[in-house]
Design a protein around this nucleic acid. Structure first.
Length: 565
DNA sequence: CACGGGTGCGCG
DNA sequence: AAAGCGCGCACCCGTG
């Protein structure tokens, strides 16, 4: 059963039930649905949830947080906006009325309803301000059902929509629970590396100030601001150090007494500005880090974040992520996920076999394709990213001889992209088309009047788009695997919880593309680890059926995140 | 003063 | 060793 929730013009909530009608594939929605007003949303959802419906709503981020705040969880949902975006572009539904229709309000990104102030307070923004067209979830849901039903692969696209929606629920729940964060520990890390917090915001902490003073002396540049690349290049030049950029790896090649303190300054300045005390004040509230996850925020289907930089948490400060007393963190990451995804997608049995023993790169070396593990790794990255030069570019052909099926798959995706065509992931998320400027440059390149520079530029842009589509199928399918994994883990943890509320039982607290963190009572940690492993196996089957491919995990049971890996 | 592009670096 | 994919964020600096 589905229950569609909508907001009426007067701000009230209206619910409409759908009951599946036999085996018609879901296109027809059976008896004509009746809308009913809902006065107490939380109570309504809590009651109806016992029948395990799938809740249908415009944006999970606009409905679910307030339910969670009232301690109401839902098992399943259908996020209309996220699903609309998938169906709009998917090659599996390209002939549908939804895909053929003009762009409309469902193509617009969800509007954030809260913003975070530096003091940690939440600032409420207006509800969707843009006038737009009135959204009709019911009509949109019908269009989406029809698009899936008419697809040649309703199973695949249906699984993708379910996984994407589950991801939206998980994002809201992780935001609600937050990542356990010890502000005092974070402060201790900062103080140890930078010196005490300055009394006045904006002043440099002691260690940074010392480094700056030394740098200015060593470079004889009393006014130097190392945060300004232009200023730095100039000052280095006056000291006889000619550089075209101030990137760390570039500076490392130089021999000069100022280089070591400069690299140290850059490292500490980065820590201070990205994850210093200001970040701590803004994003950590009541010993929890609560970032805004953005499911589907990346074209490939990966999540993004908005504010807080949750997906870039530096290793330096992971020691501040500490489990509550009597609790543990179970940290699990999928080993070598993307190359394994590639092997599975291509059905390349030799590459699958190479990874079967645990270390795919070691397996590639054992097959004789390359000599060292580092070579295997660099060559695989080159294959997935489209390297043409350097060691990676040189090693790739050897990989192609050893694993023709896997390499042919990414080469095929690259050629399609170069021609301006669409490619798709395993479950049917499709790449966007290149922009109008790209198309125009390509057609002009074959024009007789095209200059050599124009032709070269067009070729370069074509190859660049080919690298994007080459990577899209792998990164996007890996993102699907991760969503299925996480959805499975969530289901298993919910079963484990019984009647206990979300944060009183094992629950997901972090997700990082191919890695998850579960916060759980210490005595359940080993059971949780088993469930996480079972979830990975389930995700593999969901995507690749009976293909005997393993997605091995590295699982660590720790007190703080810094201890993992 | 606000805005936006460029740079650099954190993560996968 | 620094090439090839996807991001977000802080900072600098030129422009309006």
């Amino acid at each position: 059963m589905h229950i569609v929730l909508a907001r009426s013009a007067d701000g009230g909530v209206v619910a409409t039930r759908f009951v599946e009608s036999g085996d018609d594939g879901g296109n027809e929605l059976g008896i004509e649905p009746v809308a009913e007003p809902v006065s107490d949303l939380a109570a309504f959802v809590r009651t109806e949830e016992q029948a395990r419906p799938r809740w249908v709503w415009d944006d999970t981020s606009r409905w679910y947080p307030e339910l969670l705040a009232q301690h109401v969880r839902v098992e399943r949902c259908h996020d209309l906006r996220l699903c609309h975006t998938i169906l709009r572009y998917s090659q599996l539904t390209s002939g549908s009325a939804l895909a053929m229709a003009q762009h409309n309000e469902w193509d617009a990104p969800a509007v954030a309803i809260v913003r975070r102030e530096p003091d940690g307070a939440l600032f409420e923004l207006d509800e969707r301000q843009e006038p737009g067209l009135p959204t009709d979830p019911l009509a949109e849901f019908r269009l989406q059902r029809a698009a899936v039903a008419a697809s040649e692969e309703p199973g695949r696209i249906g699984r993708l929509l379910a996984a994407e929606s589950a991801g939206a629920l998980i994002a809201a729940e992780m935001r609600f629970a937050g990542l356990p964060w010890r502000a005092a520990e974070h402060d201790a890390i900062l103080t140890g590396m930078l010196g005490a917090r300055p009394a006045v915001d904006g002043e440099r902490p002691a260690k940074l100030q010392e480094l700056l003073t030394r740098l200015r002396e060593l470079l004889e540049a009393p006014e130097l601001n190392p945060d300004s690349p232009a200023d730095l290049v100039k000052s280095l030049g006056r000291a006889g150090l000619i550089v075209t950029s101030t990137r760390s790896w570039e500076l490392k090649k130089l021999e000069h007494p100022a280089i070591a303190p400069l690299l140290e300054y850059k490292k500490l300045a980065r820590l201070l500005s990205a994850n210093g005390w200001h970040w701590l004040d803004t994003w950590v509230v009541d010993e929890r880090f609560k970032p805004d996850y953005v499911p589907g925020g990346v074209v490939t289907g990966r999540w993004a974040t908005s504010g807080g930089g949750a997906l870039q948490l530096p290793r330096q400060i992971r020691g501040a992520v500490v489990a509550d007393d009597g609790w543990k963190l179970v940290v699990a990451d999928a080993s070598q996920l993307e190359p394994r995804i590639l092997a599975a997608m291509a059905g390349d049995r030799d590459m699958v076999t190479a990874g079967a023993a645990g270390d795919l790169y070691a397996g590639i070396v054992a097959s004789g394709a390359v000599e060292t593990r580092d070579q295997a790794k660099v060559a695989m990255l080159g294959a997935m990213y489209g390297a043409t030069t350097g060691e990676s570019g040189r090693l790739m052909p050897r990989l192609a001889r050893a694993y023709p099926k896997a390499i042919a798959l990414v080469e095929h995706a690259a050629r399609a992209g170069e021609r301006g065509e669409i490619v798709s992931t395993r479950l049917g998320r499709s790449s966007p088309l290149p922009g109008a400027g790209w198309q125009q440059a390509q057609s002009q390149a074959y024009d007789e009047t095209a200059t050599q520079a124009q032709t070269a530029r067009a070729r370069s842009e074509a190859r660049s788009w080919g690298r994007f589509t080459r990577n899209f199928i792998v990164q996007g399918t890996a993102a699907e695997w991760a969503l299925c994994w996480m959805a499975s883990v969530r289901r298993r943890l919910t079963a484990l919880a019984g009647e206990r509320w979300l944060t009183d039982a094992p629950h997901l607290v972090f997700f990082l593309h191919d890695e998850i963190v579960v916060h759980c009572p210490a005595e359940l940690a080993h059971i949780v680890a088993d469930e996480i492993r079972a979830g990975a196996a389930e995700a593999g089957t969901l995507l690749f059926g009976p293909l005997p491919i393993e997605f091995p995990l590295t699982v660590a049971i720790v007190d703080n995140y810094g201890q993992a890996k």
